[in-house]
Design a protein around this nucleic acid. Structure first.
Lengths: 143, 143
DNA sequence: TATCAATGATTGACGCATCAATCATTGACC
DNA sequence: GGTCAATGATTGATGCGTCAATCATTGATA
């Protein structure tokens, strides 16, 4: 109905395209998927964390978390153990080897991200972040 | 390296989250996935179009296009025919029934999008679109 | 103590995207 | 006319996400 519909539609399209273009490039450049690196990044900041807490922090489905962790465990990047006080919950932790590897990933990620914001002023970044925040809040309220 | 790294990283996170939160809600609200609706939207604007051209316009993999069209064909929303002058290429076209159905989807989409931009001024939308464009161009140049 | 609801993790089925491999058709070139 | 590279569409394998169903464990309660 609004006369600004075309503009709005274009922004939605831009958001989608950025995501679709960025994700595969991120993965090629850094050697790891965004989700998985996000998991590892959370793990890096703590000693040990509950799988449920981790799931909430990275905001992906528990099933997906389980599968990520399973593979990371096979590669011996993380280790898991049951909580002896409550056998339902499992603790997740980086191995020392894992912790070392992530350093590299993070360096690559940093370099990737700086390319994404090439030519941006601090002002522009701030404005962009605020506007995105506004969008995000609106989206959150839908339904 | 840059001292603004945290801010940049946050924006990347915001972009991802918006995408991840918006996509499923879009689908629930409109009753159709974004990609599929984008395909139909392109089809609505033309009489007939080549499958390759369609693929380029929606910017997704040919394999995915084939699979979408296959299902849309089964539901009799679109129809396809070979180009008699070159049997390799296939033309895609909305059926009249399909064209009718899309009207509804588009109405829902419009309502959805207006919620996403609730409270935005025209100025803000313009700035956002420009900044996203800048991001997109940077991403395009990576690799 | 037996039952039962809640919680956490896992698995299965599915959707949607990618890439790589394959198949059919075409057109150019010997 | 036969060969061969290019083009367009399809299929298969894989990755990653969702939801729904299931399983084990726990704690409250009759």
């Amino acid at each position: 109905m609004t006369e600004f519909y075309d503009q709005e539609q274009k922004i939605i399209l831009q958001l989608n395209e950025i995501y679709k273009q960025m994700s595969p490039k991120f993965e090629r450049c850094t050697g790891i998927s965004q989700s998985r690196l996000e998991i590892l990044h959370k793990l890096m900041k703590v000693d040990e964390i509950t799988q449920t807490a981790l799931k909430q922090q990275v905001n992906i489905d528990g099933a997906a978390v389980t599968r990520h962790l399973k593979q990371l465990e096979e590669k011996e990047i993380i280790s898991r153990r049951r909580n002896p006080e409550d056998n339902r919950v499992t603790f997740v932790q980086l191995t020392t080897e894992g912790r070392r590897k992530i350093e590299c990933y993070c360096t690559e990620k940093e370099s990737f991200i700086s390319k994404v914001f090439n030519g941006f002023s601090e002002e522009e970044r701030t404005v962009l972040s605020e506007l995105l925040n506004k969008v995000q809040n609106n989206v959150k309220q839908i339904d």
